[in-house]
Design a protein around this nucleic acid. Structure first.
Lengths: 262, 262
DNA sequence: CGGATGATTGAGAAGTCTCAACCGTGGTGG
DNA sequence: CCACCACGGTTGAGACTTCTCAATCATCCG
């Protein structure tokens, strides 16, 4: 499956941005087999309660992890962009207690657990890299709790735009202050724990403040510093190599390949 | 350090509740060396930004992961009870972007990363178990996002009491409807994203509803079913063995989507 | 042109916050 | 031994953020 190579390469780059992997290990990642499927907007990639035997790599599009309430309300708990293996933890927890939904038309690569598990068994460094990848996701989840729990609508929304900006940039999908983010205000409201109406009004405030603009689904952040300021944004939780503190270095380290950000 | 054995045993039991480990692997866990320290209430076990070379096992007490805002507000993002290795992910991400605080006088066992990492390198099953442990934590974090984002105060508080009940019971620290939970209303408010005043009023509602009582810091849930009901509580996210779906060998309940069984 | 989806606006309702005071209890020092 | 203090729990009243409901507008597409 030659067309799947670019997506695996993106995934590898994501891993390499936080973990050192040798040449053999990198080749092992790139050699994973996968099966591409296309998922239409608002369709589940993983339905809550599903037991799966493959992990899902977002090759192109936008996906989100979610939790839904009995009254129909929904809360998005994470966004997944190109190169994110939104489901990597399913290798160790194959029965999902949450859902993953495609927010736009999304191409997903299904990677068999059996292969991922074989990698973990053969290469301890890959085991650590996978675990670390999950830890980064958890760090973002924790930050989101504080975001919805302790910030007002404006700061909350600003924080998400800052996060996505940095993540898009790190993934090579745009610049932190200019990126394509294909969510409706309804979807945004589900991520922020607000109503769509209030998202609309809050967005207008951010625009009138001169912090940012939207053109269709393009996000333009005109005043990055001040947007970060109202968001109380501190990128440390993204655990990106550039975000200050240095990577752990057992011994052979610092390959820092691939992370050529535009 | 013989007195550390019970805590390591609790930690092992937590791992075993979700992961299968052989005898040699179990002995390896129990053989970890550790250094016990006592932390007084409201003192940090890990301060945000710290880079550590050990993980912290809660031997006795109550700890919480937190994120703090610039205006002094604080959000607790997880509770850690006896037997929880609150910091296990620090093995792969030694620089914390969050804090861990003792809510009561807490005895913490510091376990060197070097030893944990040696276990991961030697025993792939332990690597998977550690990764799975972090995935459970992440699952709880995700649930909390929905909790603060989409539930009103009463349901939100009810949900936390349900979660802690099941976790206490699973850890052998009480019964789901009768357990010791040593948090002040102020601390609870930090976990729920509410003010202490509103926590007080909400607690009174839960009491007057007849769902639960408190006697000093003892929690008594008089109507478990109805408390779960108002909380929309579904224990699946705790990934406890008793909570329905199973791990590892899942041939009984393959689901839709035509996915091939492993 | 009709229909669907998403963005926008208005007005009143509801939930939660803020500030401020008061109470109860356990510990401490005189 | 008692007075006092600190902390946590409780109560009240008014303010503010966000929600709800409902309508209108804009754009895309068949």
């Amino acid at each position: 499956m030659p067309s799947n190579q670019p997506a695996l390469s993106r995934f590898l780059n994501r891993l390499l941005s936080r973990s050192a992997l040798g040449d053999e290990e990198q080749q092992a990642i790139l050699g994973l087999t996968s099966h591409a499927v296309q998922v239409r907007p608002n369709y589940d990639i993983v339905t809550p309660g599903d037991t799966v035997d493959h992990a899902c790599l977002v090759a192109h599009g936008l996906a989100a992890r979610y939790d839904h309430m009995t009254d129909g309300k929904r809360q998005l708990t994470a966004f997944y962009i190109d190169g994110d293996m939104c489901d990597l933890h399913s290798v160790v927890c194959p029965t999902a207690a949450w859902g993953i939904v495609a927010l736009t038309t999304t191409t997903v690569l299904k990677v068999p657990h059996s292969e991922l598990r074989a990698l973990v068994d053969s290469y301890p460094a890959i085991a650590l890299a996978f675990w670390r990848d999950g830890t980064v996701d958890a760090s973002i989840l924790a930050k989101w709790i504080g975001n919805v729990g302790r910030r007002d609508a404006r700061a909350r929304m600003a924080h998400v735009f800052c996060e996505l900006g940095l993540r898009m940039e790190a993934a090579g999908l745009g610049n932190r202050d200019a990126y394509w983010f294909d969510v409706s205000q309804q979807n945004l409201s589900d991520a922020l724990g607000l109503t769509a109406v209030h998202v609309n009004r809050t967005l207008q405030i951010l625009r009138s403040n001169g912090f940012m603009r939207t053109e269709s689904r393009n996000i333009f952040i005109d005043d990055w510093a001040r947007l970060c300021d109202v968001a109380e944004f501190d990128a440390a939780y993204l655990l990106l190599p550039c975000s200050g503190h240095e990577r752990e270095n057992t011994s052979a380290q610092q390959s820092r390949a691939g992370t050529t950000v535009r």
